[in-house]
Design a binder for these strands. Structure first.
Length: 179
DNA sequence: CCCTGATTCGC
DNA sequence: GCGAATCAGG
């Protein structure tokens, strides 16, 4: 996404209005907050009338920083996590989306990595939202939705081939809901 | 951990 | 000129 005259104007306007770089980036779309900040500096309008935060900055930067990415040492053995999913029960109790502190629901814009990404509603609808509850580190869903995602209905013992089949069906179903 | 802007520098 | 990576701070 290039910095068209129009986009630059919007940038100037929003920046003057005191919006943060990330907020401006979201509004413009197609750029990151870094891109916005970079542009702001290049335009020479770093200072602002209504700074959301005072922020002082002595700016002593003696230590030069090597650009190259460090080669990954990582010699420590990587223990297998294991942790097979424990037994589960519980039928299907609907779990509604949780309101954020702001009173809004988690949307694609507000959803954080730490939030449950279980989709709720019709993705084509404006009321579409996500569960939004806290999800464990590296977890896509909250506790309850993780269980639902893991084993919806499979219960009986099956042949290995059937189990594989169930996994594939499960994935296909999840994809349908997500997109 | 979330966020903020500032700076550097390979592209 | 651009912006990711990084830094520094709240």
């Amino acid at each position: 996404m290039a910095w068209t005259e129009e986009r630059v104007e919007t940038l100037k306007k929003l920046w003057a209005d005191g919006l943060s770089a990330s907020q401006i980036a979201k509004q413009l779309g197609g750029v990151t907050r870094n891109a916005v900040i970079g542009k702001v500096h290049r335009l020479g309008l770093s200072g602002r009338a209504a700074p959301s935060r005072p922020a002082r900055r002595p700016a002593p930067k003696p230590a030069p920083r090597p650009r190259a990415q460090p080669a990954a040492p990582a010699s420590t053995a990587k223990p297998q996590p294991s942790t097979p999913a424990p037994a589960l029960r519980q039928a299907a109790a609907p779990i509604e989306a949780e309101r954020l502190a702001s009173g809004e629901y988690a949307t694609v814009l507000t959803l954080k990595d730490s939030m449950c990404k279980w989709p709720i509603g019709d993705p084509a609808d404006t009321t579409f939202r996500f569960c939004g509850r806290r999800s464990g580190p590296g977890q896509a869903y909250c506790e309850a939705h993780s269980q639902m995602a893991y084993q919806p209905q499979a219960k009986r013992k099956r042949k290995p081939t059937d189990d594989a089949r169930a996994v594939l069906d499960s994935l296909a179903g999840a994809r349908k809901v997500n997109f």
